[in-house]
């Protein structure tokens, strides 16, 4: 079984902690002038997303997590599972609603996304940072009111609801930052 020593710790390294795969977010070496050395580590539990801080004695080892990020294409949702495909090997995998979580609202068929696999099983689905989605429902805008920065809710083709400027109308396409769930700009219809 592969292990990592604390001196190999760096952000992004995938390690096993208390039976969960985790990704190191921050690694600070604490070495007092005349005392024992530690690694103060912040890591994200990849299963529940929580960030936890823990200290390791320098020189300790931890088990490596067999975790990899793969770029995949989102295919479709069959009502129960979301299906993804590796566009190089054409291998397909499926993930439950629980795994896909909030990412579901940004997934449009044929769009790319990042699938995190642990022992070849998907554990996290990350949509692209920016997606272009069509508005399927929104109230009519108020004429002339384009400069005041007012917004209104709009439902997008994937089901997500974001606040858009008043001048946006149904069938127009918006660019959204999925990390904060906010409208960025108007985009060209495809």
């Amino acid at each position: 079984m592969a292990t990592y020593s604390t001196n190999e710790f760096k952000p992004g390294l995938k390690i096993m902690i208390d039976t969960s795969p985790c990704s190191i977010v921050e690694n600070i070496i604490v070495k007092p002038g005349k005392g024992q050395a530690f690694n103060r580590v912040k890591y994200r539990n990849l299963i529940n997303g929580r960030v936890v801080e823990r200290t390791f004695k320098s020189g300790d080892t931890v088990e490596a997590a067999d975790v990899s990020d793969e770029e995949m294409q989102y295919l479709y949702h069959d009502g129960e599972f979301f299906h993804f495909m590796n566009t190089t090997s054409f291998e397909q995998i499926s993930a439950t609603q629980a795994i896909v979580g909030d990412a579901a609202q940004w997934l449009k068929e044929q769009d790319p996304c990042t699938v995190t696999l642990w022992n070849n099983v998907p554990i996290v689905i990350m949509p692209p940072n920016f997606v272009n989605l069509k508005i399927v429902d929104t109230d009519p805008g108020v004429r002339g009111d384009t400069a005041t920065g007012g917004t209104k809710p709009a439902t997008l083709e994937t089901g997500a609801v974001v606040r858009v400027p008043l001048f946006m109308t149904i069938d127009e396409v918006v660019r959204v930052d999925t990390r904060i769930g906010e409208y960025i700009s108007r985009a060209k219809a495809e």
Binding site: V30, Q36, F38
Partner: peptide, 11 residues
Amino acid sequence: RDDWLSLTFTH
């Protein structure tokens, strides 16, 4: 004892 004090101090 000093190791534990040092741990507490640094953290």
